[in-house]
Design a protein around this nucleic acid. Sequence first.
RNA 1: UGGCCUAUGGUGUAACUGGAAACACAUUGGUUUUUGGUACCAAAGAGUCUAGGUUCGAUCCCUAGUGGGCCAACCA
Length: 667
Amino acid sequence: MSEETKALNFIEHIIEEDLQNGLSKDKLRFRFPPEPNGYLHIGHTKAIGISFGLGETYNAPVNLRFDDTNPAKEEQEYVDAIKRDIEWLGYEWANEVYSSDYFQTLYDWAVQLIKDGNAYVDSQSSEAMSAQKGTPTQPGVDGPYRNRSVEENLDLFQKMKAGEYDEGSHILRAKIDMQHVNMHMRDPLMYRVLKKHHHRTGNDWCIYPMYDWTHGESDYIEQISHSLCSLEFKPHRELYDWFKEHVYDYAADKLPMQPKQREFARLNLSYTIMSKRKLLKLVEQKLVSGWDDPRMPTISGLRRRGYTPNSIRTFIEKVGVAKRENVIDVSLLEFCIREDLNYSAPRIMAVLDPIKVVITNYPNDKVEWLEAENNQEDDSAGCRKVPFSKELYIEKADFKEEANSKFFRLKVGSEVRLKNAYIIKAESVVKDANGNITEIHCTYTTDTERKVKGTLHWVSIQHAIKAEVREYDRLFMDEAPDSHQDTDFMEFINPNSLKIIDAFVEPSVLEAQVGDRFQFQRLGYFNVDNDSKAEHLVFNKIVGLRDSWEKQKPNPQQQNNKPQQAQHKRPAIEAIKQLGKKYTNVPEEKQLISKAEIIKLSEEVTYEDLQPLFNTAAKKAGTRIATMIALRVLLKNGQERNSDIEEFITKAKDDKNELLVAEANAI
RNA sequence: UGGCCUAUGGUGUAACUGGAAACACAUUGGUUUUUGGUACCAAAGAGUCUAGGUUCGAUCCCUAGUGGGCCAACCA
C-alpha cells in the first residue's frame, strides 16, 4: 500500500524543514493571539485553523493568548465570546494566557534595554515624532531626546510607571535607526502612558506596552516555536527579530527557544467584509440585530445561522494556505455546509409559499398518517408519520395551468407524486375575481408504483403548524465592498437581505429544539433560531439546495437563441479571455495589437458569451478591459443596453486601473 | 523617489532536490432517484504575467520589466 503524501502548505514545509534540521518535535508550540476587542469572524477561523490544526497534526500545545495591551478597546465580553467560539469550533487550547500576565517581565526587560542603551524616553508631541519619522520613501531624522543619559531615561521611565506623567507626555522607544528603510525600525514605540482601567490588571499600570514589543516577547516567554500571522505583519518581522535577539541576552538560559514569525495571506470572502471595525459599525447602527445576526460573517453569526463547526473546519481546509491575495467564492462555504448537512439533517416537509390543493375524490374527514423516511442518506435515522387529508398546501411555484414538457411539476391534466404519499392529477382550478388561482382541484390514486416524473412536497392544511421562516440574502451587493477607494462600503448594503416568511410545516417539528437543523425537502437546510418558542417557531434558512432547475429559468430565451456553434475551432471568447488576461502586463505596443485583435474577435462573439465575464474578479483588470472592448463592439452592432451592462460599465469607471476607466468612458 | 511580499483554469490550492500541470469548488452534459437534492460517470476550461538568461530539459533557479498587495496609529 503506497501511502499518498498529502500536499503540504508552505508553513508545513517550513516546520518539516526545521524538524529535519534538528528541532525536536516536542519543542513545537503554537498560539492563537486575538485581541479581545471584537467578535471572531470567518477570517479568523483561517488563523485558528492553521495554528490549532498544526497543533493537532503535530500533537503540539497551542496557547490561546489574549493580546490585551490596549485597555481602551478591550472588554471581558469579547474574551468570553472568543473562548465560546473557539470551543464551539472544537479546538482545545493548552493554556489560556494573557499578554497582561507578562507586564512585569516586559517592564523589567525594558529597563534592561534602557540600561544597555537600546531604549530611551522621548518627550515630544506625537506630531513632532511622526514628522521626524519620515515616510516610506524618505528616511527619518533623530529627535532631540534620542541621546538622553541612561540615568535620565531610567528615572523618567520609572516615573511614567509611577503615574507621575500625563498621557501623551512621555513614551519609551527602542533606539534602533531613524534612517532605516523599514519604518518599523525607526525607533518604534514600546510604552505609552495610559491611565485606563484594564480588564485584568485593574489600575495597577499607568503604562502599557505596544504590540510589537508585547507580542514577540509573549511568544518568547511562552516558547512558541512558530508564530503564525497574516501578511500585513511581514514588515514587523524585522522588529520582532530585533527585540527577540536583544532580550535573548537576558534570558537565554531559561528561555532557549527563539520563536519564528511567518506570515500567510488572510482569508477574503466574496460579498462580505472582514474588518472588525466595519462589522462593529453594522452592529452599532443596528443594520443587523447584533454580532450574532445570521447574516454576519462572525462565527457567532454563522453558528446562529445554522452552520456546523465541521463545515467551517472543512471549508478552512479546502481554502488552503499561501501568500497571495485571494478572494474565496462563498459557494465553497455553501458546498461545505450542504455536504455536512446532507448526511446529518433529518428531512421534513414545509411549504413557504402556499397554494391550496383539494383532493376531490378523497373522503372529507379522513386522515391518514403515512410513513416518511427521516433521512435516506442515513439508515439509522428512522421514520416518522406525516398526516394526509383532503386539503393540502403545495408551493405556488410547483403548479402551472399550462407548461411545456420540461416542467416536471403539477399542471392541469397531468400527474405528479406527492412525497411520501399518493399520485395526484390536477383536474381544474378555481379562480377569484381577479383571475388568481385560489384552489387546485385534483384526484388521487393509491397506485403509487407508477412512474411519474415529478415529486412535490406538501403539508396537510388542518395539521400544518405555522412557523416564521427567515430567509437571508448576502449583506452586500458588491463582490468586494470594502475595496473601493471612493465608495464607502455602507453604500453596497443590500436592503433586502432579510425576508420574513409565514410558512407551514409538518407537525413533527413541534418538538424541535433551538439549534436543531432540518432539510425542508426540496427547499434547503434550516435551523431553529434562538428566538423560537414552542408557540411560535422560528427557522433560519441556512442555505438552499442546489437547484439546477431554478438556474436555467431566468434566461429562457438564452437556450433558443444560442447558435449551435461548431466546437472544432477555439471559440473567439476564449481567445479574448486569453488576450485580456495578459493585457495589463504587456508593453504598450503589444497592448495595441491585442486590442485590435480583441475588436476583430468580438465580431464573432454573442452577448451570452460575454455576459459571464461581467463577474470577473475585480482584481483581474486585464480581463475586464478585454470584456469592455468586446462589449463596445457588441453595442455598436446593435446589442441593447441592460442593467447588467450598465452595472459592469459603472463599476469599471470607478476602478483604479486607468486603462479600464478609459475603456469604460469610451463606451 | 524607497523597501518588502506576490503572480498557475472562473475561484482557491498543489506539483517532493528542475523531468508529460494535479485536486477541490463553480460550469456543462449524462446515469440513478418518491427531493430538478444526493451519489456516480463524463466534458470543457490554464500550457503557469512579459522579455531575456542558465540547462538536454524551467511553474520551479537568475536578471529586468509589468500588474497586484503591504509599509508613516501613543491600534493590534
